[in-house]
Design a binder for these strands. Structure first.
Lengths: 186, 186
DNA sequence: AAATGCATTTGACAATTGTCAAATAATGAA
DNA sequence: TTCATTATTTGACAATTGTCAAATGCATTT
């Protein structure tokens, strides 16, 4: 799940971590279109998608822009707000009926204070998402809209089948019309 | 310096941290055009710029693309390589004669193992650079080349005066010619 | 100061993507 | 099934940015 990609870690330490995290995880069912977080408020939770799809989005010049998708086993939050404890410009909504596990900021930080050795895993998590973001920047800078779309088709075909094209379009930084034309070409 | 932006931290803990980090920092002078890191190798150092300018760049279709600049008080490294311990596609070169402080990956991790409480500061550092990166993505997605340039002029006029325009151009994802035209318009 | 090598600008034109409006297609509710 | 709503595609055209080649400007070395 959240720590699944980690390598080179102490097995027993990780087992403890997972057990402790279990304690602060809350599982809940939500239905499609429900909001996990609303813009203008501070985001107090990190969400893990057990089943379903969520997307974070914000408004730019009246347009709805998707910033991130999370499907099964993925995580989502209004990360800047969660980190900096300030109001968020992001919304998080569910695109399907979902099973969500949430971890509150408060609980997580309490746990980190009690067991500072867990800081390491948060660091590893951050390193991972940092690298993912860096890759996204390169993608935007050096691949055409068409290449970005094709990469998505290749890497996350499952996602493509499950979300509206307008969200895919804004996610890769193009208009819906351009995406439509890209798709019909080929 | 590296931890200067941190808020809400324990003062004495931070003082200890700084003292310990001092121990593993090595200061060196380099002259313009020297390389702090070369692509194809694993990057073993985090560099702090005490004086001067460095840029990281890589090659894409034969073109030289600037990924990041660091001036006085900034940090630079081939972050993906430094984190994942794999060979880097990035180079780091100096654009002026510089005074550089370097911290080796090994020393840093040894320090973190000895004093796991410092993990927290690394996490805070990562949070900060993650947010900076996220901002850059928004910038690329929703601002025109002209807006991106003007933002740079506003935020880091000092940088603009000190580096070649071709580097600025690739940094904001446009060609040198387009940047030139943007500049002469206004 | 002249010569050389870069850096920057300019021109002409092409490719990519965006905008706005309208037409179809698909979906979900009654 | 039918209707209403929403999603997707298409068309015509405009704006932005890229490409390639050449000209100009600037700075460093001799």
């Amino acid at each position: 799940m959240i720590f699944e990609k980690l390598e080179n870690v102490n097995e027993s330490d990780l087992a403890n971590l997972l057990a402790d995290f279990q304690q602060i995880m809350k599982k809940e069912s939500f239905s499609k279109k429900e909001m996990l977080h609303k813009e203008g408020t501070i985001c107090n939770h990190l969400f893990l998608i057990e089943k379903g799809i969520a997307r974070s989005f914000y408004h730019k010049d009246g347009k709805d822009i998707t910033a991130h998708f999370a499907i099964e086993n993925g995580t989502i939050t209004a990360i800047d707000s969660f980190i900096q404890r300030k109001r968020s410009r992001y919304n998080i909504e569910l695109l399907e009926d979902s099973e969500i596990i949430s971890i509150s900021h408060q609980d997580m930080h309490k746990l980190l204070q009690e067991k500072p050795s867990y800081e390491k895993y948060i660091r590893l998590f951050l390193e991972q998402i940092y690298i993912d973001l860096a890759e996204r920047i390169e993608d935007l800078l050096f691949h055409s809209a068409k290449e970005r779309y094709e990469k998505l088709v290749k890497n996350t075909p499952n996602l493509l089948r499950r979300v509206h094209l307008k969200h895919i379009a804004s996610f890769i930084g193009i208009t819906q019309e351009t995406l439509s034309r890209i798709r019909t070409q080929t």
